[in-house]
Simulated assay, not measured.
Amino acid sequence: MTSEWQPPTGSWASSAANRRNMQAIRSRDTKPEQLVRRLVHAQGLRYRVCAKPLPNLRRTADMVFRPAKVAVFIDGCYWHGCPEHYVSPKTNLGYWSDKVARNIARDRDTDERLTEAGWTVLRFWEHESPDACALKITATVSKLRPKRS
């Protein structure tokens, strides 16, 4: 038996440290999401977190406002290919570049499906100002929320 680290069969990790690092990355409740949620909540709006806007769509939005039909996504610069901040990886370039390209394609498909179903999709990059994001979300939801009689 060799003492050198071997990735599990089919693993994307190029080293044990890389694997640990990638496994620690959160898919929900990231700092940018939490900041925006806190600001929106302070404005009196209530929402679902990490919820499916459509029951038959196997994708979740970071914030879902069901009555107003607004789905909010706060995309990570690396994982969603931010035109300003995305940097190609130095190792396993083919795998990661393909993964980000698939993520981008899935994002566009999600936007299209939600729009066809009558939803408003708001997408923000993680580097955008939480205050500006919260203002846009609040204004959009307030405009689209059904009026109470």
Rank of each mutant, 00 (worst) to 15 (best):
M1W: 11
T2S: 13
T2D: 13
T2R: 10
Q6I: 15
P7H: 02
P7N: 12
P8G: 15
P8V: 15
T9N: 11
T9L: 14
G10T: 04
S11D: 15
S11G: 11
S11K: 15
S14C: 08
S15T: 03
S15P: 01
A16Y: 04
A16C: 06
A17N: 05
A17C: 06
R19N: 05
N21E: 08
N21Y: 13
M22Y: 06
M22A: 02
Q23M: 10
Q23F: 10
A24K: 10
I25K: 13
I25P: 07
T30F: 05
K31Q: 09
K31A: 08
P32Q: 11
E33T: 14
L35A: 02
L35M: 11
R38S: 12
L39N: 05
L39A: 03
V40I: 05
A42N: 14
A42M: 07
Q43V: 03
L45F: 05
L45Q: 10
R48S: 15
C50W: 09
A51S: 15
K52M: 14
L54D: 11
L54S: 13
P55L: 13
L57N: 11
R59Y: 12
R59S: 14
R59T: 13
A61Q: 10
D62L: 00
M63Y: 02
R66A: 03
R66T: 13
P67V: 09
P67M: 15
P67G: 04
A68V: 00
V70M: 04
V70D: 08
F73Q: 00
F73L: 01
I74D: 00
I74S: 01
I74T: 07
I74G: 00
D75I: 12
G76Y: 00
C77D: 08
C77W: 01
Y78G: 05
P83C: 01
E84R: 12
E84G: 02
H85R: 07
S88W: 14
S88I: 13
P89W: 08
P89E: 11
T91C: 14
N92C: 05
L93A: 08
G94R: 07
Y95T: 12
W96S: 06
W96G: 03
S97L: 09
S97C: 12
D98S: 13
D98C: 08
D98T: 15
K99M: 03
V100R: 01
A101H: 14
A101I: 06
R102Y: 11
N103P: 06
R106T: 10
R108F: 14
R108C: 12
T110H: 15
E112D: 09
E112K: 02
T115C: 03
A117L: 03
A117M: 04
G118I: 06
W119M: 10
T120A: 09
V121E: 03
L122S: 07
L122E: 13
R123Q: 07
W125M: 12
W125F: 05
W125N: 11
E126P: 07
E126T: 02
H127R: 09
S129W: 14
P130Y: 01
P130F: 00
P130K: 02
D131T: 11
D131P: 13
A132H: 12
C133H: 00
C133M: 05
C133Y: 02
C133N: 01
L135K: 00
L135Y: 09
I137S: 06
T138K: 09
T138Q: 05
T140N: 15
T140G: 14
V141H: 03
K143N: 14
L144Q: 09
P146A: 10
K147E: 15
S149R: 15
